[in-house]
């Protein structure tokens, strides 16, 4: 059976497979380096003194250049733990509202036929098209009237309003593709419309929810504008605002600036590492398959 030709062919195909795998890894590894290198560069240089940062930006810190002075400045000048807590509360709460309320609205729009359905859908996604920052003054006046200035709730409400259009847009698109049979079966089983949404639909759209979550999270976490306008007090400051103000205060002190950047990056990475498993589990659960 093992004619020489066959073995040769098997070998070439194995070789091809190996070289294929190698090139897959080469591309992925190459791009991963591009993605991570700048972040690594900042962290590495945050452990050097000012001359080390400028003189040898690409070398690891060594005895001559190692310095924790930047971190000392950051820790003595800014309360980054509070800022981080604020960012976390705002982001998580807004995300929850965007996903839950967005999914409920998308479900209603995709599932039921009622008057003005199409119009309402357009209404809900129009908000994608105008940067919400333009409504700043009206939003601020509203928050003053509601007595919400310098509270995290003000930020949560604005971010929820800002995130809903994209969430509704993506979620209705996907919900339309859900099979109706499952829902109708549930109806025959006597489940209420609410339970159908909570127990049938939500689990089915989990992967999309995870995607929407990642999407919505980024502009919220990174926003500079609304924290500045609505909640710039020390007690409600977010990490992004804290870092930005810190950079303003220590423009020339790059050791401190790099340390502040590193401190701001690390928790996000940790959080993402934590979320990432959930996210991928969501995506790969394959609920949409079939």
């Amino acid at each position: 059976m093992n004619t020489p030709v066959r073995t040769a062919r098997a070998r070439t195909s194995r070789l091809r497979r190996i070289s294929g795998t190698a090139s897959v890894h080469a591309v992925l590894l190459g791009y991963t380096l591009i993605a991570v290198f700048p972040v690594f560069l900042v962290m590495m240089n945050s452990f050097k003194d000012r001359r080390g940062i400028f003189g040898e930006p690409l070398s690891l810190p060594h005895a001559g250049t190692f310095s924790l002075e930047g971190y000392a400045t950051v820790l003595s000048e800014g309360s980054f733990a509070t800022y981080f807590g604020n960012s976390l509360i705002v982001t998580v709460a807004s995300l929850f509202l965007i996903l839950f309320l967005g999914a409920a609205a998308a479900h209603a729009l995709a599932e039921y036929r009622f008057r003005f359905n199409a119009l309402l859908k357009i209404y809900m996604i129009v908000g994608i098209m105008v940067p919400i920052r333009l409504g700043t003054v009206a939003i601020l006046k509203l928050m003053v009237d509601l007595n919400l200035v310098n509270t995290l709730l003000a930020l949560i409400l604005v971010y929820t309003a800002q995130g809903l259009p994209v969430a509704v847009f993506i979620l209705t698109e996907f919900m339309r593709t859900l099979s109706r049979d499952i829902k109708d079966c549930a109806r025959i089983d006597g489940l209420s419309e609410y339970r159908i949404f909570l127990e049938v639909v939500l689990p089915l759209i989990r992967p999309v929810l995870a995607t929407v979550a990642v999407f919505s999270m980024i502009p919220i976490w990174n926003d500079l504008w609304f924290p500045l306008i609505l909640a710039s007090s020390d007690a409600t400051k977010t990490v992004t605002l804290g870092v930005q103000q810190f950079i303003g205060q220590f423009t020339v002190n790059w050791g401190a600036v790099l340390a502040a950047l590193s401190i701001a990056i690390l928790p996000v990475l940790g959080l993402y590492a934590l979320f990432s498993r959930q996210l991928i589990a969501g995506i790969t659960s394959g609920a949409v398959k079939g």
Partner: peptide, 12 residues
Amino acid sequence: LIFVPTLLSVVI
């Protein structure tokens, strides 16, 4: 890792 830059603030 490839997703890391997406998480960073534009300030950074």
